[in-house]
Design a protein around this nucleic acid. Structure first.
Lengths: 229, 229
DNA sequence: TCAAAAGTGTTAAGTTTACACCCATGA
DNA sequence: TCATGGGTGTAAACTTAACACTTTTGA
């Protein structure tokens, strides 16, 4: 290993994860009780340090799979936060990621050491450092991204109903949507497959189940189709 | 200074700047000859290491003002690039930024030590490391951002003509636009001020000059106006 | 007087919005 | 049988896209 860069400082670099989950018509964010000083015991985004030979993406995946037991979670980098003094203990740069997971029926197995819990996005407790800023940034990005790419399906179970999906969008945008216009638009998308099954959990009549067909989406995209909701 | 995090590795963190400039109907990117090993003498994005007590944003501003002599350049963070091995010399994490500058008439004073030059965006030389990936990412982001926020004015002189602006958008999108539709849309925006002056440099008839009025834009935005081109 | 770039309007197609009732079911 | 949530269509307003000629001027 050479040392051309030796005169420059080195930094701790962490990742912080904004994990969104949708359940019972509510958009939720996963928070954990901080295990280390400073600010031990207060609420924060789950995170961890980047290790040698690990990309920021890999670190975020590691943190998330430790936390949730899940692999292959949808995840995107948001931004690096690097203000000196953002962590009063030490100089730490942090890369924020957001992740979308379906926390449908099976209660997510959270590793107990993490003391992580779901909070409704509108009822978050106080967070340490610049984590509130990260939440704002993530929410803005999420709102933009779900209207632009078919990522909202990561927040839904494999099979979902249109009322479920509309509720999800209403939770993300934090405003009601017109049912007929929403359904018209969604159903005009060339990748939604209507199944011959109904979900009867939330009404007597039952709502038809749908799935997202990624192959169809990719094909449509290659032919110039542009998702926008 | 405490040491709660001491067991974790520290990293060199650099910034790389994607500096876009518009001149003579061409969209250009600023590249510099690399001053240090590895790959000394090959083309790369201008960059530098983050120093103690400096945010990534401040480092990028420092690099840019050293390079161009300009302050208050429009700049946005793009993304952190952190693959192990992206810099074969040492483990370096890098935060990419893009900047937009007007390189209108007054030839930009580039500090000679940097050996930096403008390259047409479609005729870039080979770049080191993952810099080509950064260029792709920046271009995509630029295309999206100019259609969504009034940032294109940073690439134009204070006073500009509509043909100039259309050429700029054609250079960014790399496709021709319909003159009448473009002008109609631009002129419907509530922040463009038509001056009583003409620029006669590019035609005998002369084209009217306009400026961007940021106050008007902010006022319109507060009233729900949404830029989109 | 003419070459070269600036400027101008209309129509058709598509998209978005607003809006109210019937349907299927199990308790 | 009725309460509950699921499902459906249309018309008006607005936005986008396509398209060709006139104006101004200096050389």
């Amino acid at each position: 290993m050479n040392s051309f860069y030796i005169e420059h400082p080195r930094f701790f670099v962490s990742v912080d994860c904004l994990v969104f989950g949708f359940a019972n018509g509510q958009l939720n964010l996963l928070l954990s009780k901080r295990k280390m000083e400073p600010a031990q015991g207060t609420w924060s985004l789950p995170g961890g340090f980047i290790e040698e030979n690990e990309s920021a993406e890999a670190a975020a995946e590691r943190v998330l799979s430790n936390l949730t037991g899940l692999e292959n979670i949808y995840m995107e980098q948001l931004k690096m936060f690097s203000q000196p003094g953002r962590d009063p203990g030490e100089r730490v740069l942090s890369v924020a990621f957001y992740a979308l997971i379906d926390l449908g029926q099976e209660a997510l197995e959270i590793k107990p050491s993490y003391q992580a819990y779901w909070f409704n996005i509108n009822k978050l407790p106080d967070l340490i450092f610049d984590h509130p800023e990260m939440v704002d940034f993530a929410l803005k990005t999420l709102r933009h991204t779900v209207s632009t790419k078919p990522v909202s399906f990561n927040l839904l179970p494999e099979k979902f109903t249109l009322p479920q999906m509309q509720t999800l969008f209403e939770a993300i945008y934090d405003r009601p949507l017109d049912k007929r216009n929403f359904r018209k638009k969604i159903q005009s998308m060339p990748f939604l497959v209507k199944l011959n099954e109904k979900d009867k959990l939330s009404s007597r009549k039952g709502a038809f189940l749908y799935t997202f067909d990624n192959m169809k989406y990719e094909k449509a995209r290659q032919n110039g189709f542009c998702f926008n909701l």
